[in-house]
């Protein structure tokens, strides 16, 4: 077992362990924090697929996070009011079943990622950053100006959606769902990045013209990665909506995009467990620094600056050493 693999295992054990110890001590708030960390880590795992492995700096992933959240909120609120979400071309009723909501949340964010990706991937470099940011901002303004689902005030749905066999209101059981999905996503990304598709994606980051020379179109590979990434982030958004039982345009805002990016970079770009380390550290910092000062984000900013300038490999890079790619 390499040092990084050991560290990865320790990180996952730390996440699960925190929740279990908190459960034993009856600290419901800590379980909620661990749940939040698991959800943020899931979002980070999604972004890492394009950011780390694909080398595509998307600054617009809040769009998919928010769309996953809104899909969840809209379905749950329609289930409560009994009015179908849509009647054309087929009747789509609301739902409070997570197993019914997730596919729709994933589909909604995946479709948005396909459309945004198809346009944004025509550009590269700094254009790509600005264009993804701008498209996410477009969805943000749509959500604000569309009054049907709360507009600027957001949308509450009071009752957490259900999962067969589990009581989702019990914090530790909801945590188990989130941690399970995080593990599944980590497994998926591990398999993907080792597959032919993952190799092509990483190769396109390192040397685009060689990839073209062996007969692979980088555009298609990247678009597929962008869509998969959007779908994972959308699932995270759905869970986040369920955690808070509330969705608002803040989930779509560019600060959210920046935060998801921070989870990835704080932990270590292009490392499987980087987002897990980053999300855990972020939640811990928010909790600890938030107690020190109301202006904790300024401290966070200074810390991020230090990481970028002095430790470009992120936290995992600091501990496990530079990686040989």
């Amino acid at each position: 077992m390499t040092r990084e693999a050991a560290l990865n295992a320790a990180l996952f054990v730390a996440l699960i362990g925190t929740a279990l110890v908190a459960q034993a001590l009856g600290e419901g708030f800590i379980i909620t924090l661990a749940t939040k960390a698991a959800i943020f880590a899931l979002a980070g795992v999604g972004l890492n697929l394009v950011l780390g492995y694909g080398g595509l700096v998307s600054f617009g992933h809040a769009a998919f996070f928010g769309l996953g959240g809104y899909a969840t909120g809209i379905l749950a609120s329609h289930a409560m009011s009994g009015v179908p979400v849509a009647t054309l071309p087929f009747t789509l009723n609301g739902s409070t079943e997570m197993l019914a909501i997730w596919p729709l949340a994933i589909a909604a964010s995946g479709l948005a990622a396909l459309a945004i990706g198809a346009l944004s991937l025509r550009t590269s470099g700094v254009y790509f950053i600005m264009v993804t940011l701008a498209f996410a901002q477009m969805i943000y303004y749509l959500a604000i100006s569309w009054p049907a689902y709360g507009g600027e005030d957001g949308l509450s749905f009071y009752v957490r959606n259900t999962f067969p066999g589990l009581n989702t209101f019990d914090p530790i059981q909801f945590f188990a769902i989130c941690a399970g999905l995080l593990a599944a996503a980590l497994g998926l990304v591990a398999v993907l990045t080792r597959s032919r598709f993952g190799l092509a994606l990483r190769a396109a980051r390192q040397n685009e013209s060689r990839v073209v020379a062996v007969g692979i179109r980088p555009y298609s590979i990247r678009l597929l990665a962008f869509m998969l990434s959007g779908m994972i982030v959308g699932l995270a958004g759905s869970l986040y909506a369920d955690l808070n039982r509330f969705v608002s345009p803040a989930m779509l805002s560019w600060h959210m995009s920046g935060e998801i990016m921070v989870f990835v970079i704080l932990g270590g770009v292009g490392r499987l467990f980087g987002p897990v380390a980053g999300a855990l550290a972020y939640i811990a910092l928010e909790h600890l620094l938030g107690g020190v000062s109301d202006y904790w984000q300024a401290l966070l900013g200074l810390l991020l600056l230090a990481i970028v300038i002095y430790a470009p490999g992120g936290l995992i890079g600091l501990i496990a050493g530079r990686r040989h790619v």
Binding site: L51, V57, F59, G125, V126, I129, G258, M261, V262, I265, V269, Y295, W296, Q297, A298, L300, G301, L302, L303, L304, L305, V308, I309, P312
Partner: peptide
């Protein structure tokens, strides 16, 4: 660009909170 984005994002946090 990734490092630039993150560092200048961090600067925003510092400036705003400051």
């Amino acid at each position: 660009h990734l490092d630039q984005v993150l560092a200048t994002f961090a600067l925003i946090l510092v400036f705003s909170e400051g």
